[in-house]
Amino acid sequence: MKKFSSYIVGGLALILLMMSILDIGYTKIYEVSYPRTKFQYLRSLEDTKVDYIFLGSSRVENGIIPSVIIQKTNKTAVNLGFQASKAGDIFTVLQLIKKYNIHYEKILIQIDYIYNNVDGNSNIFQFEMIPFIRENEITKQYSNEYSRNPIANYYLPFFRYCSNDLRIGFREVFSNVIHKKTTIVANKGYVALQGNSKYLKGSLPNSIINNNAVFDSIRGFCKKNKIDVVYYCAPFCKNNKNKDFTSKLKIKIPELIDFSTAINDDQMFENCNHLNDRGARRFTEILAEELLVK
């Protein structure tokens, strides 16, 4: 029995060692490889200067084309919108921009119905951040607040890679190792949508919440750090219910620039909330002319 117990204890120790080695290896690969995800791209901007930074949800990621901004303004721009982002995600990106010492002239934040989401976060952002949760206090805090097993993720080696294997497991690590590129860097964060849904319709919330504390934190942070910030609302398709939501939003955020009706042609939408590539190009031109060239 003693021999067997030693085998089991030794085996468990070896498993723990293997997990530690794998954890270190995977994390290192994510740290040093060419950015494949938006979060890796954000990290890669450390100590650089970008003129315009766009933050928000997929309505930014799929709706703002940095190359068009560059063309129009002769200034640099990056799209740091993350799919399904809520106010908490935007606030975290804002803090990380400061942490990574990224210099900029102006930050443009897209706000719409996400104003109503006080809780919740973007799963995509969360997955992409997991390899870096031990990197600084901001990522650690985000993980504590939003991930399902924050303690195990942080302290148990390799647990985070096992429990999120579909997103950041072996396949993604292997893609990083062989430098399998995505379009993230080439398009400076913009992800194009193609096509056009046949029956475009959507609905905005019919009411707005009194106050979004996380959004107040964003505002406070911008004020404290003297950030030149622009809040805007991106276009929606024509056949959208409760369009007056943007007026309600403007009462909450008086400085909001409302582009919600800036694109009238439904052919430029992939779905009611998201522009397709043609629409994104047109909208980016409009936004650049209105906010950045004038």
Partner: peptide
């Protein structure tokens, strides 16, 4: 062989779903 299989379980296992 057991150690190699354990390593494979860690690396290739499907844990998300």
């Amino acid at each position: 062989k057991a150690l190699a299989i354990l390593m494979a379980i860690l690396i290739f296992g499907a844990y998300s779903n």
